[in-house]
Design a protein around this nucleic acid. Structure first.
Lengths: 201, 201
DNA sequence: AAGTCTAATTGAACGTCGTTCAGTTCTGGA
DNA sequence: TCCAGAACTGAACGACGTTCAATTAGACTT
């Protein structure tokens, strides 16, 4: 059997990415493989390689969706006029999203791409846009400081919180502490706000 | 050929762990395998399983050494009477050690043990002892606060810095920022000190 | 309508991995 | 001296990612 007409090229491509997303979300990245994916969509493993360069390619597309989803979660966060409160709201949005999509988030950072493979530029851009949103809050807290300071604080708070949340998400935070990740995150946000507030011009 | 007398049971065990450590340090955990390890020591892969439960077992022993080495790096850190300065010195010791042993450190946190496998208790204890050392600095900064507060700050600063350094060590920090990890770490330390100094009783 | 071209799909294959195990050989103790 | 059991090998199992010759069905040409 060959050359079936079950799906058009586009249909099959989105079927693959959709199913990959479901599989990773439910079973985790460790249980994900070319064979399990192809079994799930009713095709052979070889077929995947006619529509995608390799498994990296497929996982990258899933990861991109995860990042886009995070951006949407940020946008859907509770609005507030107080930039300090808004930072906490973003933190909640972040935490909520990752809690909901634990396995997908872990896939985003645990997946080992081949050494030479460069990070796709929209990865970087997706993260940069989140950081700009955060930096704006800092800029609102101290309008007398320049944009660079706000941007650096945005990067720092994103890196801090992302790291700690990932540590928790991969089940390793309890190696270090027995506290609730929610409390820790908000404590970190308060610390960054405090430090920024106390900055000298 | 079977039953060679090249090494005693203990000699072979330490040969395995030593060689595993070298291989991981030089090639990274991805290039590490039962076959590459056994090839390096001149035995068959099957032999490994007569002396160790599985590869997890071997990697865990290497990881334990890495953690012990970190504790020694802490102890060898430049002493100082100023607890604030001491925190920065510990941060430098941490950073220096991880820079030196990048691949081993990544192995410690990137290696996926089987789902049910529990974390060995001395892992937790090794980390806990590092945190106690850090917590002491906080206790010295504000002797009026209770030990619990110092301990929590110790955990938090360890988690923060460990996470950010790991992010850098695995080559992902530059997704978020283009700043030097050294500067970032000391900035974080200063933030934690500032926050602790401003704590209400 | 018949024939040809081409894209899609399969299934077997390659070399890798962790792990197990029957079989073989050697060592230490009785 | 003999033998139980420990140490070691090499083949095997079922997984993995990936490639590719062979096959087939749809699209295009005449």
């Amino acid at each position: 059997m060959a050359r079936r007409a079950d799906h058009s090229k586009e249909e099959l491509a989105s079927l693959v990415v959709n199913t990959a997303e479901e599989l990773i979300a439910e079973e985790g990245i460790d249980a994900f493989s070319a064979r399990s994916l192809s079994r799930a969509i009713g095709y052979t493993a070889g077929t995947l390689y006619h529509h995608f360069k390799d498994l990296d390619d497929i996982v990258t597309q899933v990861n991109t969706r995860t990042l886009v989803g995070l951006a949407r979660a940020f946008a859907d966060g509770t609005p507030s006029d107080d930039p300090r409160q808004m930072l906490h709201n973003y933190a909640d949005a972040f935490l909520g999203y990752i809690t909901l999509k634990r396995n997908l988030w872990n896939a985003l950072f645990e997946f080992r791409r081949k050494p030479d493979q460069p990070v796709p530029p929209w990865y970087v851009e997706a993260i940069a846009s989140l950081i700009r949103i955060i930096a704006q809050c800092f800029a609102d807290i101290r309008p007398d400081l320049d944009d660079k300071a706000a941007h650096q604080s945005g990067q720092l708070v994103f890196a801090s919180i992302h790291s700690v949340v990932s540590l928790d998400s991969s089940g390793r935070l309890n190696l270090i502490m027995d506290r609730d990740i929610g409390k820790v995150v908000h404590e970190l946000v308060d610390m960054h706000i405090l430090a920024y507030t106390h900055r000298t011009k």
